[in-house]
C-alpha cells in the first residue's frame, strides 16, 4: 500500500460519502428533520385555516420551521460519531479540516433536501405569493448555507455533552440571530411583492455571514475536535 497525495478535497469527500452511505442505511437525521418540518407546517396550516397571514408572519413561520428543523437534525453528524465511538478513528487517522468540511457538506445536502420538500408544502399550506420565487430561492440558498455553517461547528461542541438537544438549540440561537433577522426580513420583502433589487443588501449580508462562519469554523474546528 502506497501513501497517496490525498488532499483536503478527497478526504472531505470521503467523509461526506461515508456519512451519506450511513444516512441511507439508517435515515436517522433526514427522518428527524422531515418529521419536525412537516408536522410544524401542518400545525400552522390547521391553525390558520382559510385566513391569510400577513407577509411578516409568513416569513417568520417559514424560518421558524427551518431553524428548528436544523436544530433537530443537523447535530446528528457529530452526535452519531460520539455515540458510536467512531470519532477516535477519525481523530487518529487524519487532519481535522476534512472532517469539518465533509460534515458541513453533508448537513448542507440534508437541509437542502429538507428544503426541497418543505418549501412546496409551505406554499401549498399558506397562500404565500409565488411571484418572487427566484429572490425567495436566493434567500433560501444563502439561509441554508448560513444555518449549516453555524450549526456544524456547534454540533461538534455539543456532541460530547450529556444534554445535547437542549444545549444545541441554546448555543446555536445567539450565533444564528444575525442570520435569522435578515432572512426573515428579506423573505417578508419578497412576500410583500418586493423585487430582487430590494433584497440585494440582505443577500450580500447573508453571503458575508456564510463566508465568515465557514472560514471561522474551519479555523476553530481543530481546537474543538482535538480538545
Amino acid at each position: 500500500m502506497q501513501k497517496s497525495n490525498a488532499g483536503l478535497v478527497s478526504r472531505s469527500f470521503a467523509v461526506l460519502a461515508k456519512d451519506i452511505r450511513l444516512e441511507f442505511r439508517s435515515r436517522y437525521a433526514i427522518n428527524a428533520i422531515l418529521m419536525f418540518g412537516i408536522t410544524s407546517l401542518a400545525v400552522v396550516s390547521f391553525s390558520v385555516g382559510q385566513s391569510s397571514l400577513p407577509p411578516v408572519l409568513m416569513a417568520a413561520v417559514f424560518w421558524i420551521v427551518m431553524f428548528f428543523s436544523a436544530v433537530s437534525g443537523l447535530a446528528q453528524v457529530f452526535i452519531r460519531e460520539e455515540e458510536a465511538g467512531t470519532s477516535l478513528v477519525l481523530k487518529l487517522n487524519g487532519p481535522a479540516e476534512p472532517v469539518y468540511l465533509g460534515k458541513l457538506f453533508f448537513n448542507f445536502l440534508l437541509l437542502s433536501t429538507m428544503s426541497m420538500i418543505i418549501t412546496p408544502l409551505f406554499f401549498m399550506f399558506t397562500d404565500a405569493p409565488t411571484d418572487g420565487v427566484v429572490a425567495f430561492l436566493a434567500i433560501l440558498l444563502l439561509g441554508v448555507i448560513g444555518l449549516c455553517a453555524a450549526t456544524t461547528l456547534v454540533a461538534a461542541v455539543i456532541a460530547k455533552a450529556a444534554i445535547k438537544g437542549a444545549l444545541f438549540a441554546v448555543l446555536s440561537f445567539p450565533i444564528l440571530v444575525p442570520l435569522l433577522l435578515p432572512v426573515v426580513n428579506a423573505t417578508e420583502i419578497v412576500f410583500d411583492g418586493g423585487a430582487f433589487i430590494d433584497i440585494s443588501a440582505h443577500l450580500q449580508f447573508l453571503l458575508a455571514y456564510a463566508v465568515i462562519m465557514i472560514v471561522g469554523s474551519l479555523l476553530l474546528f481543530r481546537f474543538v475536535w482535538e480538545e
Binding site: 497517496s4 470521503a14 467523509v15 439508517s26 458510536a84 477516535l88
Partner: peptide
C-alpha cells in the same frame, strides 16, 4: 476495545474509508 468502526458499513468500506482519510491508496 474502545476503538470502534462504522457498524453500518462493511469491513471493506471501513478499510477504504480509513485508508482515504489516512492518505493511503488501497
Amino acid at each position: 476495545p474502545y476503538l470502534n468502526f462504522y457498524t453500518q458499513l462493511s469491513a471493506e468500506e471501513n478499510i477504504r474509508f480509513i485508508a482515504t482519510v489516512k492518505g493511503v491508496n488501497v
